[in-house]
Computed example of a mutant assay.
Amino acid sequence: MKMADYKPRHFNWRVEGTVAVMSLDRPERKNPMTFESYAEMRDTFRQLSYADDIKAVVIASNGGNFCSGGDVHDIIGPLLDKDMKGLLEFTRMTGDLVKAMNAAPQPIISAVDGVCVGAGAMIALFSDMRIGTPAAKTAFLFTRVGLAGCDMGACAMLPRVIGQGRAAELLYTGRVMSADEAERWGFFNRLTDGAQLEAEALKLAQQLVAGPTFAHMMTKTMLAQEWSMSLPMAIESEAQAQAICMQTRDFRRAYDAFVAKGKPVFAGD
């Protein structure tokens, strides 16, 4: 499946080489999520599992903000009128978005500026890497609207990224995590100036796609799977994954380049 000409209706999309760059498209409202954008983003990441022309994804900010979470008028208001079946359909759909991100073979980099809260914070959390700006303000604010902090996999994923105690504080209080805290705690891989944010994320993505992309896919797969494995199972799974990678042409290219005292040019096969 080719996605260079993909035209989503509910968010911005462009492709630079083999890097897809997407962003939410309501900057005047700080880019809130709607029912439609949830569903379309979920379906897009599912399609990316079969896209051979996209090797990495950047989720960018827009208008100085990343995402303000679920739209109060377009989502939260209508949820008050839904029955349990309708509510569960919605909460499962939001979970399906981050599951699709986790399952997509491409590394995903979130470039976070300004507001990054609620569902936006979850999209950033389920990215493989995050670059922020000093103005980034991240909050898992579910308890502040009377909901549990366990939304969209937050209680599973956030402790893995920043630790159990820190995650518990953020999920109980819903308070803002500053950019400095986020970098210090490991949520952000690094901070950069807002004017350079998207360029820095693209640079990182392009570094990844110039590498052994099949091996990157295997790395992402093992990072996701090994949380539920015992240590002996994980070691055996990595032995199998590495044996698979040793059959790739990229492994041969790396060896040939080393022998020739050159730099390998990887092709992802």
Score class of each variant (00 low, 15 high):
residue 41 M to P: 02
residue 32 P to W: 07
residue 1 M to L: 07
residue 116 C to K: 02
residue 73 H to V: 12
residue 75 I to V: 15
residue 55 K to R: 14
residue 20 A to T: 05
residue 87 L to Y: 01
residue 73 H to W: 11
residue 254 A to R: 06
residue 84 M to A: 10
residue 29 R to S: 10
residue 90 F to G: 00
residue 92 R to H: 14
residue 202 L to V: 10
residue 263 K to P: 00
residue 124 A to Y: 11
residue 231 L to E: 14
residue 29 R to N: 12
residue 76 I to S: 12
residue 238 E to P: 00
residue 230 S to Q: 04
residue 194 G to S: 13
residue 125 L to C: 01
residue 206 Q to M: 14
residue 133 T to E: 10
residue 133 T to G: 13
residue 129 M to Q: 09
residue 150 C to S: 13
residue 48 L to Y: 07
residue 201 A to S: 09
residue 189 N to S: 11
residue 135 A to G: 08
residue 225 Q to F: 11
residue 125 L to A: 01
residue 52 D to L: 03
residue 106 Q to R: 00
residue 168 A to G: 02
residue 8 P to T: 11
residue 38 Y to E: 02
residue 191 L to W: 09
residue 174 G to F: 08
residue 4 A to S: 13
residue 98 V to D: 09
residue 258 F to M: 14
residue 207 Q to C: 10
residue 17 G to S: 11
residue 56 A to W: 05
residue 177 M to T: 05
residue 251 F to G: 01
residue 90 F to K: 00
residue 251 F to M: 14
residue 108 I to C: 00
residue 216 H to C: 03
residue 95 G to D: 09
residue 88 L to H: 10
residue 163 G to P: 10
residue 214 F to I: 03
residue 26 R to E: 13
residue 160 R to K: 15
residue 90 F to M: 06
residue 233 M to H: 12
residue 30 K to D: 08
residue 186 G to H: 05
residue 145 V to I: 15
residue 72 V to P: 10
residue 137 K to W: 03
residue 88 L to I: 10
residue 250 D to T: 09
residue 44 T to V: 12
residue 69 G to M: 04
residue 20 A to W: 06
residue 208 L to A: 08
residue 29 R to G: 00
residue 81 D to T: 14
residue 20 A to S: 13
residue 149 G to K: 01
residue 186 G to T: 02
residue 197 L to T: 08
residue 26 R to K: 13
residue 11 F to K: 03
residue 261 K to F: 14
residue 53 D to N: 05
residue 219 T to V: 03
residue 17 G to A: 03
residue 94 T to M: 12
residue 195 A to I: 09
residue 48 L to N: 10
residue 256 D to Y: 07
residue 224 A to N: 13
residue 11 F to A: 10
residue 221 T to V: 09
residue 90 F to A: 07
residue 111 A to L: 02
residue 157 M to A: 13
residue 153 G to P: 02
residue 118 G to C: 14
residue 92 R to G: 10
residue 240 Q to E: 05
residue 57 V to N: 11
residue 118 G to P: 04
residue 187 F to L: 06
residue 268 G to Q: 04
residue 249 R to D: 15
